[in-house]
């Protein structure tokens, strides 16, 4: 087990390095970064000044290694636009995005787990088919559009929630609901298929032969087994949700890292964009490691092997 985790850790570090390199390469895609920064109205002289100021006149490899060494230390340079350290900017915005992601995941779990279980218990009934339809609808729902609909309906018509912006807990409800839609289908399907597999297993027959209550059979015996992969996937889903939060943050004008990235893309503020890509990727990598770890902790066959 330890060996497996160590192997995964090494892969994670390699992936992180790859992403570091890619996010460096990303900003060099346009060719001359200095021209992009300077903007369309800059003179040749302006471009030259910028080139000097940001060290863009050095050889590419020097720039790369310099950037790599700093990035590893958590130094992503300075924002062109905000006149602040990129690390500070991200540090102040990340809690909003993380909270949003966790709210979304929580909503997704609260919806997906019970529905998945009910669908499995009533396999092939109309309940099951309805639940699977819900999964399909969730999969097909454009998140930004759902966000707008909720703004009109819950925000304007029913006046239940603030329409947009960053603020107290009530500001996280609508974006959280929208974000949860991206995780609900897969969590629900996984819960359902895991429960169906568990419920048809020999050990559930044993539990029934022991005369245990229905609740105990469903929760203690079936769900305990079905939940192991679901918990792990939930961690990975959180990673995907954080990556997708840029759309939702833009729709609801929530000032998280996604919004920051979107703003910065519009302002050609590349150090910020680069750093957000990197941070989100690193969080995703950490979450997949966490998923492996959770798997190992929850599954006694892995834990004690």
């Amino acid at each position: 087990m330890l060996k497996f985790l160590l192997r995964r850790l090494i892969v994670a570090i390699l992936v992180a390095l790859t992403v570091l390199t890619l996010s460096f390469a990303l900003t060099r895609l346009s060719g001359d970064l200095a021209i992009s920064i300077a903007g369309p109205n800059a003179t040749q002289q302006d471009v030259e000044i910028i080139r000097q100021a940001y060290g863009l006149n050095r050889p590419l490899t020097t720039q790369y290694f310099d950037w790599l060494v700093r990035a590893v230390q958590g130094d992503f340079g300075e924002s062109y636009f905000f006149r602040d350290r990129v690390a500070n900017l991200i540090g102040s915005r990340l809690p909003i995005t993380m909270t949003l992601g966790l709210v979304g995941l929580l909503i997704a779990l609260v919806v997906a787990l019970p529905l998945g279980i009910i669908a499995a218990v009533r396999e092939n009934s109309w309940v099951d088919r309805t639940v699977m339809m819900v999964a399909l609808i969730g999969q097909a729902m454009p998140s930004f559009w759902l966000g707008l609909i909720l703004m009109v309906w819950l925000g304007l018509n029913l006046d239940l929630l603030p329409i947009s912006g960053t603020g107290g807990p009530e500001y996280y409800v609508m974006p959280g609901i929208v974000l949860s839609f991206s995780a609900i289908p897969s969590l629900m399907r996984l819960t359902r298929s895991g429960m169906i597999e568990a419920l048809s297993s020999d050990y559930i027959r044993t539990a029934r032969a022991k005369g245990l209550s229905r609740l105990s059979i469903l929760v203690k015996h079936a769900f305990r087994n079905a939940a192991i992969p679901v918990v792990a996937i939930a961690a990975v889903q959180l990673g995907f949700m954080l990556g997708g939060s840029i759309v939702i943050e833009s729709v609801f004008a929530m000032h998280g890292v996604g919004y920051l990235a979107w703003e910065s893309i519009g302002k050609n503020d590349f150090p910020v964009v680069q750093a957000v890509v990197l941070v989100l990727a690193l969080i995703y990598i950490a979450l997949t490691l966490l998923a492996d770890l959770l798997n190992a902790v929850l599954d006694p066959r892995l834990r004690t092997a």
């Binding site: 050990y203 044993t206 032969a209 022991k210 245990l212 229905r214 305990r224």
Partner: peptide
């Protein structure tokens, strides 16, 4: 279910898969 496991018990055939792995 009140009878099973209490007054009438059963030993099933497949010992390898009949215990809950978790």
């Amino acid at each position: 279910s009140r009878l099973r496991g209490d007054r009438m018990a059963m030993i099933v055939q497949e010992p390898m898969t009949s215990l809950n792995p978790a």
